[in-house]
């Protein structure tokens, strides 16, 4: 199944959003590996694993739990470390 990741901060270099194919029943925590593979397909030099590891994922209203199962067609945002103010 396919989901959409909306990009922010440093991940903007990959565009506004990324379409990602994941397995049925995958949770947020499972999806990180698929996302890393996709990012490295798009940019072979991408090696910021710590940045990806420290990123959270969110809907428009809340930060999503790592254990949350993903659903076909979902759009979620990647939230790398923040620096507002």
């Amino acid at each position: 199944m396919e989901i959409t990741i909306q990009c922010f901060g440093l991940f903007r270099s990959f565009g506004e959003q990324i379409k990602l194919s994941i397995a049925e029943g995958d949770r947020i925590s499972d999806m990180r590996k698929a996302l890393l593979d996709k990012l490295q397909q798009m940019d072979a030099s991408f090696n910021k694993l710590d940045l990806l590891g420290s990123a959270r994922f969110a809907s428009e209203t809340e930060i999503l739990q790592e254990s949350m199962p993903l659903k076909e067609g979902m759009a979620i945002a990647i939230i790398p470390p923040v620096s507002g103010g």
Binding site: F8, G9, L10, A58, A77, I79, P80, V82, S83, G84, G85
Partner: peptide, 9 residues
């Protein structure tokens, strides 16, 4: 806000 809001520089 500095720690909890989705803002990047």
């Amino acid at each position: 806000i500095k720690h909890r809001s989705p803002v990047w520089k």
